[in-house]
């Protein structure tokens, strides 16, 4: 927010953070990436019977630039992996990722040369949803878990350069310890 730099972790900034996180978690805009059968359950999750609008996430955006929650719903092949990563990179920070279903989380039943064995090999995933495909309730539960995470102020989407720098510093520290 920028206020933290001026005021530090005072009661004012933490209260503002909490209020902003409350706003964020109740107005998530998902980017639906239905790349196989999980996509059908994801549609049911948006429809009246399950009704994701109860949790404020009904505005499905088909442009990643307007979304802050990526739902990867389906088998991710190696050919598709670059596309998924490109969509993720286009989303503005802060952003969250749900890996929906067995294929997305671990390759699932496609234990083969063409399918990535879990999208966490190239994306930071916040929540994994079990099932093949998961029921819409299950995905709703994942959404609630994401909301809890947002309220706690957590996101795995640290910009890559920052993460790389941090890793490098840690490495340097470890090397320094070893040399001494």
């Amino acid at each position: 927010m920028g206020l933290e730099h001026a005021l530090g972790d005072t009661a004012l900034t933490t209260t503002i953070d909490s209020a902003i996180n409350w706003c964020r978690k109740n107005s998530l805009w998902p980017m639906p990436l239905g790349i196989s059968c999980c996509g059908i359950e994801m549609m049911a999750f948006a429809m009246p019977r399950f009704d994701v609008a109860r949790f404020g996430a009904e505005v499905f955006r088909f442009s990643p630039r307007q979304a802050d929650l990526l739902i990867v719903a389906g088998t991710t092949t190696y050919k598709m992996a670059t596309v998924v990563r490109k969509i993720y990179d286009q989303m503005p920070d802060p952003k969250w990722v749900i890996a929906m279903g067995a294929c997305t989380s671990s390759g699932g039943m496609y234990r083969t040369y063409s399918v990535v064995q879990g999208i966490d090999q190239f994306l930071p995933v916040d929540i994994y949803v079990a099932g093949c495909p998961p029921r819409p309730d299950n995905l709703l539960h994942a959404l609630l878990m994401i909301q809890e995470k947002i309220q706690r102020g957590e996101s795995r989407s640290t910009p890559m350069t920052v993460a790389a720098e941090r890793q490098e510093q840690q490495l340097l520290q470890i090397q320094g310890i070893n040399n001494n």
Binding site: R111, T112, Y113, V116, F122, P124
Partner: peptide, 21 residues
């Protein structure tokens, strides 16, 4: 050529590049 019998089922590691994490 993946459907040849001498191709391993899980593929050749690093033969298809993944995006950088």
């Amino acid at each position: 050529f993946p459907l040849r019998k001498d191709f391993p089922m899980m593929g050749v590691p690093d033969s298809i590049p993944l995006p950088r994490k």
